[in-house]
Amino acid sequence: MSSDDQPNGPGEATEPDEATRPKDYRVLDAGALRALAHPLRVQIYDILSQYGPQTASSLAARLGESSGATSYHLRALAAHDLIREVEGRGTGRERWWERPKGGVTFANPEAMRTPSGRAATQLVMAEFFRRRQQQLVDYVNRGIINEPETWQESSLLSTSTARMTVEQTQKLGREIQALVDAATDKYRDQQGEGVRPVTIRADIFPLPNEGEAS
C-alpha cells in the first residue's frame, strides 16, 4: 500500500512497482514503520498529509489530546524523517511541522520478513484505512446533505466488480496510479479561493473465489 498525500493534493493508490514508481517515492524501512506504528502517530501523519503544516497545539485540538502528547509523538516521527520542522516558521514555543513532499509506501518486503515488521506494517495500514474509511462514512452521513450542490456533483462514490487476470489487474492499477499521480503533481501546492483538500481513493484487490469464505 502506498500514499502520495500532499497538502492540498491528497491521494493514495495501488502499490507502484519498481519500474513505474515515481522517483520521489520513499519505501519506509523497518525503523520508520515501527515509529509510525501507533494509532495517534498515524492520525498525526495523515493530518499533516491532508491539511498541511500543524503545531502540537493545533493537532491536540483536532485530536482531543494534550499538546504535550502530540509534541512527544511529533518528535518521534521527526526522528525517522517522517516529518520535519517547517523552516522559518514558528518560534521556540510554537513549532510548525510538515510532512515532506513525495509519496511513501508502507509495503517493505524486508520489513515483512520479520514478525515485528509485519506487525508494524499491519498496524499502520489498519489505522490509516480506519481513518480514511471514517472520513468516507462521515461524508455519506453528513457531507452529502451539507455540502454545496457544486461539491456534491463533483464528488464520486463508485464501486464496480470485474473478472480479471493478475496481468490485467496490474495494468489497471498502473493506469489508475498514473491518473492519480498526474492530478497530485498538478494540484499539489494549489492555493486560492475555492481550493480545499480532496481525498482520492483507488482500491483494487481480489475477492475470494466462489465457495471460499467471504
Rank of each mutant, 00 (worst) to 15 (best):
Q122A: 14
L123T: 15
L40D: 15
D185H: 02
G194E: 06
P148E: 07
T150K: 12
R26D: 00
V198I: 14
L28G: 04
Q134Y: 07
A202N: 13
G102A: 07
E153L: 12
V180A: 04
D17H: 06
T159S: 11
T150G: 02
L74I: 02
A13C: 09
R132C: 05
L28I: 04
A61N: 13
T114V: 01
Q50T: 09
K23H: 11
A178M: 01
A78H: 02
D29A: 07
G102Y: 02
L82I: 05
T14H: 09
G102V: 01
P53R: 05
D46L: 15
I47P: 01
E15Y: 07
Q191R: 11
K23I: 00
G194H: 08
T121D: 03
Q152G: 11
F106A: 08
P208D: 05
T114C: 01
A35C: 11
L207Y: 01
G31Y: 04
R95C: 08
P115S: 00
A213E: 13
T161D: 00
L59W: 05
D185K: 12
Q170A: 15
S154A: 15
D181E: 15
A56V: 06
G173D: 08
K23G: 01
T91Y: 07
A35Q: 10
T121I: 05
A162M: 05
A13R: 14
I176F: 06
D17Y: 09
A162Y: 03
A61G: 04
Y45D: 12
V104I: 15
D29N: 15
D138L: 08
T169D: 07
T14F: 10
R62Q: 15
P7H: 06
